[in-house]
Simulated assay, not measured.
Amino acid sequence: MRWGVDSSLDQLVLVNNAKRALDRGHFELIYQPVYSVDHREVDSLETLLRWRTRPNMLAAAQEFRAIFRDPALSLSIRDFVLEKTLSQAAQWRAEGHDFGRIAVNTTAFDLCSGDFALWLSEMMDAHRLTPDMLEIEVPEPAFYGPQAKQVGLALEALHYCGFSLALDNFGATHAGLAALRQHPFRRLKIDHGLMRSALTNPIDKAIVRNVISLGHDLGLIVTAAGVESEAQMETAVQLGFDSVQGFFVCFPKEAEMVPRVCQILNLQGRSA
């Protein structure tokens, strides 16, 4: 299901439906492994938000992105995602499961609301986790709007507190290069659309190859997101990506399945 918001009334209905869904527990989290090409094992996990619109249907976040225009709802969802993610990470750790880092997506509004770094550090302490276990994914468009300066200050605070930073959707706008110059990212994730274009467009393929080289020169882990076919996987390996993420490697999984799935991927990598 996709929600096209054509009017303020449509937006109001969508936001009200989302608020009820959040109160009733209809928002869920699933987790997708990020696979290291070099080490042939799971490098980290990414938390993905889903809305259960029907008993057998989960809507992906891009299908209801309009709800994040509502400031109060956006913060409520941010808090839900982080609290549940950290609780799950603490449980995996207590059970002896090594998940590397776990990544969460943020918006410019998330980063600029209050003292995000301090609030997040306190949450980590409450769950007995350390900041290096969490990676904050910042979408490239966050550096393109009126909140760009505030986003930059928030990232400085997060880095100071010890959190890892990832620049997501690189190539979606023209703001990515400036962001790389100004902020201490650990990971660079290439935009899905640019990856798809690289399969058939030699110019885009050359752009991706040079972006990977730039990332490596800066000491970054460069990840191919949205790898959904064998052809995309082969291209990602040929181009020199450090890690890959997408349906071809592994579909997102519910929390209880993640340790077993990671174990299988790691065993397959060691035997390859």
Rank of each mutant, 00 (worst) to 15 (best):
A90N: 05
I77F: 02
D125Q: 02
M57P: 00
W92F: 10
P33Q: 08
A175S: 08
P184G: 09
V104P: 08
H216P: 13
V249Q: 08
G100T: 12
L153G: 11
G240D: 06
A117G: 12
R65P: 00
F247V: 10
M233R: 13
H39D: 14
G215R: 02
P184Q: 03
L73Y: 13
N17R: 07
V37Q: 05
G145F: 04
A175D: 01
W92R: 00
A224N: 09
L134M: 11
V13C: 09
Q150G: 02
A166H: 06
R2M: 10
P252S: 09
A89F: 07
A108E: 10
L134T: 01
F248K: 09
F247N: 03
T47D: 05
V244E: 07
D115A: 14
M233H: 15
Y144F: 07
F170Q: 06
Q268R: 13
L75D: 15
L167R: 06
V249T: 11
L220Y: 00
F248W: 12
R20F: 00
E135H: 03
A72N: 14
R40K: 11
S87K: 15
L73G: 06
R54F: 04
C262M: 14
N17H: 15
S87M: 07
G219S: 09
F116A: 05
T173I: 08
E230P: 02
A166E: 11
N16V: 05
A236V: 04
V261D: 07
A103C: 09
Y144H: 12
S271G: 00
E122V: 04
M124G: 00
V42P: 04
H174F: 01
L265S: 01
E83H: 12
A179D: 04
E140S: 05
A94Y: 02
Q263C: 04
N266T: 01
K205D: 08
T47V: 15
G25A: 06
D10V: 11
A66I: 12
L75P: 03
T173D: 03
G215F: 02
R65Y: 11
L118C: 11
E83I: 05
P202H: 12
E95G: 00
E254Y: 12
E137N: 09
E41Y: 02
A175F: 01
L14E: 10
S44N: 07
M57E: 13
Q91S: 10
E137A: 15
A178C: 01
A175K: 02
V15C: 09
R52T: 07
V42M: 01
P252A: 04
D98T: 05
D168M: 01
V104Q: 06
L218G: 00
R2I: 09
P259K: 00
A166M: 06
M124K: 02
R93K: 15
A60D: 12
Q88V: 05
R196L: 13
Q245K: 09
I207F: 12
C262F: 00
A172T: 10
G193S: 14
T47L: 04
E135C: 15
S243H: 05
D115R: 03
S7W: 10
L49D: 11
E63N: 08
G269M: 05
D125S: 13
A198T: 14
D23S: 11
P252N: 04
V249N: 13
G193E: 13
N56Y: 04
L111K: 02
S36F: 00
L180G: 02
H127D: 02
V81M: 03
R209M: 14
Y35H: 07
A175G: 01
D204K: 12
T235C: 13
A172S: 14
L134C: 12
I264W: 06
P184M: 01
A154R: 00
L155P: 07
S36G: 08
